[in-house]
């Protein structure tokens, strides 16, 4: 209760939370919203483009009008509002799915390292350190390029991002597990002969919730950045599925002719990331008073 009240008193957190909630809501209701606007993300509108000038939207502000709330995409005339809203689904969907996988992997490995024997700990910790140190982007690009093109890209993206980003969670989990292990009630359970699995489930996991969730809150925007980056490099989701990173990468060739086309996906990405970071920051301040200072 106190926690909640303190959170609600934090203005930065509140702003972030509201913005984040709006984005999640937008992503969830994307088809509804586009229907409401009377548009869809794939229909071409050739009549709104100036073909002789490379297919740049006719009219000021990238073809912005009452029908096309954010204008249309150069080269295709597809409705930008619809594309951006559907792009939110990919961005958030991949980030959340990857997060769930990361937590499963990270907590599993972290607890195993913390509770396992000396050798298990040594091997798992070394693996964690390595994964943490290695620049994941390099491997992610290589991985995404060799899998057959027909595999579902969003799922693949989530898996690859998770596989390369579980180590932080594992490290924190291990540290917390080690400290929990020495607590009286856990020691008591172990002495009384409870199986390691039972100890892990009943005694350790509840204690992990706060620190792991605090950390996870920060991993989420990281995942979004990864997805956007991979899509930007062209190894992310495939067209015609819209994604912010992919839109940005096409937009880079248009920034003089149609600046709005850059600002819409770019601005949204920035605002959404900022919202989630503010949320993470607020949660940390409340749940993890040892580090009252901003982030780590």
């Amino acid at each position: 209760m106190i926690t909640l009240r303190r959170l609600l008193g934090d203005r930065a957190f509140l702003t972030g939370a509201v913005a984040a909630a709006v984005m999640v809501l937008v992503a969830l209701t994307a088809p509804l919203l586009t229907a409401l606007a009377g548009q869809d993300p794939t229909t071409y509108h050739n009549d709104l483009l100036d073909s002789a000038r490379g297919g740049v939207p006719t009219g000021a502000l990238g073809g912005l009008s009452g029908e096309h709330w954010l204008g249309v995409e150069p080269g295709t005339g597809r409705d930008l509002f619809a594309r951006v809203v559907h792009g939110a689904r990919v961005s958030l969907g991949v980030a959340f799915s990857a997060l769930v996988l990361q937590l499963l992997l990270g907590v599993g490995i972290g607890v195993a390292a913390g509770l396992g024997g000396r050798y298990a700990d040594a091997v798992l910790s070394r693996l964690t350190d390595l994964t943490l140190a290695f620049p994941g982007l390099v491997l992610a690009i290589a991985l995404l390029a060799v899998v057959p093109q027909s595999w579902p890209r969003p799922v693949l993206l989530a898996v690859v991002i998770a596989l390369l980003g579980w180590a932080g969670t594992a490290r924190i989990t291990r540290a917390e597990t080690l400290s929990l292990k020495t607590r009286d009630y856990v020691a008591a359970a172990r002495v009384s002969g409870a199986s390691p699995l039972r100890v892990a489930r009943r005694e350790i996991l509840p204690g992990l919730a706060a620190p792991v969730l605090t950390y996870a809150a920060l991993v989420l925007p990281g995942n979004m950045i990864s997805e956007a980056g991979l899509s930007f490099l062209g190894v992310g989701v495939r067209p015609p599925t819209p994604s912010w990173g992919q839109m940005l990468s096409t937009a880079t060739t248009w920034f003089r002719a149609d600046p709005l086309y850059v600002f819409i996906p770019g601005g949204l990405l920035f605002v959404t990331l900022l919202a989630f970071v503010l949320v993470a920051n607020g949660v940390r301040r409340v749940l993890d008073p040892r580090q009252s200072e901003v982030l780590r």
Partner: peptide, 10 residues
Amino acid sequence: VGPEQLAQLG
């Protein structure tokens, strides 16, 4: 020429 230049043509 890319779209940037095409937009300045005509």
